[in-house]
């Protein structure tokens, strides 16, 4: 039964994730008054990338990519999708946050293993940006954990019987959403993969099937990040309402990203450590004082 649930979670991540990425491209196109690619474009892209013949850059490169994809898939298996929980009782937020780092570090290792300086710059930027958004995110989440006295993600979801955490702690919700934009690498925070500056950064040496695997890894990590936000902040949901809320959050993030330019990396960290971090501390103070709606 656990195996079936894990398969269901992964298939949801694959199909819904790739579909929503295609829809995001369509939305982006419509914002720019273009027609845009079909919604299934990302499926074609992934399978085309897997069908080409690329080159490897040594076993560290191969291993890093497998570690990135495997780490993110393992993380996704722990994330509750509404009432679909693959491992009930084990969906602790600390497990998810720690496992998620495996994917990021695997990607960093593989990409640096390719030896290209652009990849190294991209990885350095990605890890710096991680330092930027993780701090306000975890401070805001710590407020939520303290208030509900649990760290299980489905426990946090079930604790929102009366009203959503987003309305109970609006400042924390906003901080978490801004951090989410950074995690997703959406427009003001897409510094690590800036194609015009550092030739798409970490992915610069990825060809063919390696690119396909990394696109899948990207899809799955988007799924993990948004799922956490939806579970913790957007109330109780079953599988279908979960996907609905997921789509809404993804579309809002896409719309914001469609109209904004890009920060430089030091601007990213300065921004995160000034505005969202102060707001997160204010939210934690409110929680400690009992000012929760």
């Amino acid at each position: 039964m656990t195996v079936l649930r894990v398969i269901a979670v992964l298939l949801t991540g694959f199909f819904v994730g790739l579909t929503l990425e295609g829809i995001a491209r369509k939305i982006m196109a419509r914002v720019q008054r273009r027609y845009g690619p079909p919604w299934y474009q990302n499926f074609i892209d992934v399978f085309k990338a897997l069908s080409k013949r690329g080159i490897s850059h040594g076993w560290i490169f191969d291993f890093g990519i497998l570690m990135a994809l495997g780490g993110v898939i393992a993380t996704l298996a722990f994330v509750p999708l509404g009432d679909l929980v693959a491992f009930p009782g084990l969906d602790n937020i600390f497990i998810i946050v720690y496992l998620f780092a495996v994917g990021a570090l695997g990607m960093a290792m593989g990409m640096v293993g390719s030896g290209n300086p652009n990849a190294s710059i991209g990885v350095a930027r990605a890890l710096t940006q991680m330092l930027g958004y993780e701090v306000p995110y975890l401070v805001a989440i710590a407020g939520v954990l303290y208030y509900y006295k649990t760290s299980s993600v489905s426990g946090l979801m079930m604790a929102q019987q009366d009203t959503w955490t987003l309305f109970k702690m609006p400042i924390g919700g906003i901080v978490a959403f801004i951090s989410l934009l950074g995690m997703l690498g959406k427009k003001p925070f897409d510094t690590p993969i800036a194609p015009a500056e550092i030739a798409s950064g970490p992915m610069v040496e990825l060809s063919a099937k390696y690119m396909g695997l990394l696109m899948l890894m990207h899809t799955f990590s988007i799924f993990v990040e948004i799922s956490l936000f939806v579970d913790i902040f957007l109330g109780i949901s079953n599988y279908l309402t979960f996907l609905l809320k997921f789509t809404v959050v993804w579309i809002i993030a896409t719309l914001i990203s469609a109209v904004l330019p890009r920060f430089r990396i030091e601007q990213v960290v300065k921004f995160y450590w000034k505005v969202p971090l102060s707001l997160a501390f204010v939210q934690v103070l409110f929680v400690l004082l009992g000012w929760v709606f």
Binding site: Q41, A49, P195, A196, S200, V204, S207
Partner: peptide, 10 residues
């Protein structure tokens, strides 16, 4: 489905 790519590998 066409788009610019920044690197020859892709």
């Amino acid at each position: 489905g066409m788009g610019p790519m920044a690197t020859p590998r892709q």
